[in-house]
């Protein structure tokens, strides 16, 4: 396995990527197309370019991996797993890419265990609208050197720059990972009863819980769970998730199983009406229908528009896609 090169040069794969992107016409970087509709489809006439691929370096004792944006999540996770580690990237099946996941910015199902995706990006290299390769952040796990371009790139759908290469923080895979399932138990009490659950999912009737750690920890947590909220059984994994992703505050999930008429009246129908699976303590809900548009203040729109104008004055990066819509989620 390659060592981290202290004096990382920008390699040929990146310069070739920049050349392919050019500096003039509308372009979009295409990954595995697993989340292609998020934020709206690219405008007609947009030229598609694939990001460079491959793991550049990975040193487990540093807990960082340098990886090109076009690398599939599968490839990266399996390389990490060989060394007993993992990343915060979500698993979206074959073909989904590291760069695509970062551009979309959605967390993994077990975000409580793996950490938020946005926090795992240490350094980013992207190609700017005018064709420069820009580096933001740094290769170390802790870094406050200058403005935080990596954070800006996560979830920006490639509209501010085209992701080329990233450095991600990795973490050890716990010794034991266990999914439990309980019928009719209180998911909120379950969440409170556990010290550090990796996921607590709930569909209104059944609760799925992921606990990780040393075997003795997991056993003890499971015992505490049974004592505090009721019986659970071990299962293979989480339930099948409905297609659409909602983003709510954790507190709002308490209203999900109430009759619609009892729920707080806020803007639009704020709560899903069909089948759902909610991530307790997180607020993500997978539902059978899409989340209605969320309101965005004028002040935020002003800053966002200025940001776009600063980074992509001609609007050539991923035209048609808007990070401020819930379309395609």
């Amino acid at each position: 396995m390659a060592k981290i090169d202290a004096d990382t040069k920008i390699d040929r794969a990146l310069t070739e990527f920049a050349e392919r992107l050019g500096a003039d016409d509308p372009v979009a970087v295409v990954g595995g197309r697993t989340k292609w509709e998020v934020g709206g489809a690219p405008a007609d006439g947009t030229r598609m370019v694939a990001a460079p691929t491959g793991i550049v370096s990975y040193l487990p004792s540093e807990m960082v991996a340098v990886v090109r944006a076009g690398t599939t999540i599968t490839e990266l996770q399996s390389a990490l797993a060989d060394a007993g580690q993992r990343s915060a990237l979500p698993y979206w099946g074959n073909g989904s890419t590291v760069g695509g996941a970062l551009a979309v910015g959605q967390n993994s199902l077990d975000v409580l265990g793996r950490g938020r995706l946005r926090a795992s990006l240490l350094q980013v290299r992207y190609v700017s609208a005018d064709g420069h390769i820009i580096t933001g952040g740094g290769p170390t796990v802790k870094n406050v050197t200058g403005f935080d371009l990596p954070r800006l790139m996560v979830g920006s759908l490639g509209t501010l720059g085209s992701l080329a290469e990233v450095i991600l923080r990795t973490n050890p895979i716990p010794d034991t990972m266990r999914w439990l399932r309980g019928q009719g138990i209180d998911p909120f009490a379950a969440f409170d009863a556990l010290f550090r659950p990796s996921a607590v999912l709930w569909d209104g009737k059944t609760t799925w819980i992921k606990i990780e750690g040393h075997r003795v920890d997991v056993d003890a947590e499971q015992a505490a769970l049974v004592r505090r909220v009721g019986p659970v059984e071990e299962v293979d994994g989480p339930p099948e998730l409905p297609a659409h992703r909602w983003s709510l505050a954790p507190r709002e999930l308490r209203h999900l199983d109430q009759p619609i008429t009892d729920r707080p009246k806020t803007s639009n129908p704020t709560y899903p009406v069909g089948r759902y699976v909610a991530s307790i303590g997180v607020g993500t809900v997978w539902a059978s229908e899409p989340q209605p548009a969320r309101s965005v203040s004028d002040a935020i729109r002003t800053v966002a528009a200025r940001m776009k104008a600063e980074f992509d004055p001609t609007g050539r990066l991923n035209p048609g896609r808007d990070p401020y819509t819930t379309a395609g989620m």
């Binding site: 967390n107 946005r118 954070r151 800006l152 997180v282 935020i300």
Partner: peptide, 19 residues
């Protein structure tokens, strides 16, 4: 006055909170 980020799981748009 800007409201950056939010209490929901994945606030929409650029991570202005983060920067």
């Amino acid at each position: 006055v800007l409201a950056l980020g939010g209490l929901d799981a994945e606030p929409l748009g650029f991570d202005l909170r983060g920067i």
